[in-house]
Write a protein that binds this DNA or RNA. Structure first.
Lengths: 233, 233
DNA sequence: AAGAGTTTGTGAACGCGTTAACAAAATCGA
DNA sequence: TCGATTTTGTTAACGCGTTCACAAACTCTT
């Protein structure tokens, strides 16, 4: 018998927010930050929705899952809403992540500027290759895979990033879980099996381009059939 | 008055496939390739679905959009199905892409091994920074942004990748479109506006980690409330 | 103070995607 | 040849997400 929207001491609600909404909240946060930088104090759902590239009704519905933080007839206070979303997303604290695999992609991720301003801190780099262990990448010394347990425990890390070849992904995932990691971002082109309670998100660079290629092909063949039609007509 | 499922000379169908299905076809392709390498000649939807990490019913429904390529009571011929999906995805040909922005991420993408086996070829690298122009990255000489038009035209490129800082994303997108690009993969943390007919997909590294952080926070506060409950009980 | 104008928050309709369930079609054994 | 078994292709139900449309709530003007 769980209560919906039971209020907590910190003001957040225990009702879970739809996945689709959670995925958009960081977008709203970015838009609000941009507005705040421009000195905008207040904004209506129309403006914010345009900034974020979504339908205004969708924006309002998304925000309604968090609470009632706007004022009818007026709009939203930029700073207040920014803080409320940040709190709901857990961005009042910084989150340490460990990156496994310091190849090209892992190195690029460790140097990525966009993380720090979003509450993400790359706290450790790990690699199985002895040649890479000990080298310094983006100011962080690469540790051996065997030290994963200590690193995760010592620094209280809960999020791991897999940036290895596909063949190593499953074993790395298992080691991450064994070390205590409960959220994984997987860049390897392979799907990993994890126990219940562990979240996995997958980013597949090839697949994104393959999807675009599919649409390109359709555009091309659509052109072709229309010219064919013209020819047979 | 367009006919649905009108057959074409090459055997493909003109009915458009749902987006969700298109996004999964590359996953099936990867699973089929893995099976083929293991010497498996034929497989049932159950096995293939497990390999791909999806529900068997979903797999069959997805495949039904392409046509009827299985045999009832038997299953699917691995090589035949592999070819049919590859053809539908446009993977019978290679797709050239141009990467704009040769920073850490752009360099990593240009070196990414996973592309070539998926029919993606990085054909050109472009950067606005004069210091980077002329350098060789992954065997490709970096060209100035001004030469984008010629590069796209000469090599008949239709897909562009934006790997620049967020501030440059919109201008780069406009230049890509002006050069004739009709599909864009955007890694910059900014949303780009493009004319109708141009496809944009967005990969946001920060957002993926922010979503994981949100779920981590919920796990943590759920633990807290349950211990609270135990304490107050 | 009251009416006109804004803008939020939300109920309801709609559409897409997922999943279960089953008929159709193939193989296999007797 | 026929019945039993297997597995696909598809229909129908369900659930989630999106969008519309409007009442509620606020400001502003007179």
């Amino acid at each position: 018998m769980t209560l919906l929207r039971s209020p907590r001491l910190d003001g957040s609600t225990s009702r879970d927010i739809p996945d689709a909404t959670v995925a958009r909240l960081p977008v709203y946060l970015r838009a609000l930050n941009a507005l705040a930088e421009q000195g905008v104090m207040s904004c209506a759902s129309n403006e914010l929705a345009e900034q974020a590239g979504v339908n205004p009704a969708k924006l309002r519905k998304d925000l309604s899952y968090l609470g009632s933080y706007g004022t009818r007839g007026v709009g939203y206070d930029v700073e207040y809403l920014r803080y409320q979303i940040a709190r709901e997303m857990g961005q009042t604290q910084d989150w340490d992540v460990v990156i496994v695999g310091v190849g090209n992609l892992g190195s690029a991720l460790s140097a990525y500027q966009g993380f720090s301003t979003r509450g993400i801190r790359v706290a450790a780099l790990v690699d199985a290759d002895p040649q890479r262990v000990g080298t310094v990448v983006s100011g962080i010394t690469v540790s051996p895979l065997d030290e994963l347990d200590e690193i995760v425990a010592d620094r209280d890390i809960s999020i791991g990033v897999i940036a290895t070849p596909g063949t190593a992904a499953q074993e790395v995932a298992e080691r991450l879980v064994a070390a205590g990691i409960t959220s994984i971002l997987n860049f390897a082109p392979a799907l990993v099996q994890v126990p219940d309670g562990v979240d996995v998100r997958k980013v597949d660079l090839s697949i994104e381009l393959q999807i675009l290629a599919y649409h390109e092909q359709r555009k091309a063949s659509a052109d072709k059939t229309s010219t064919d039609k013209a020819a047979t007509a």
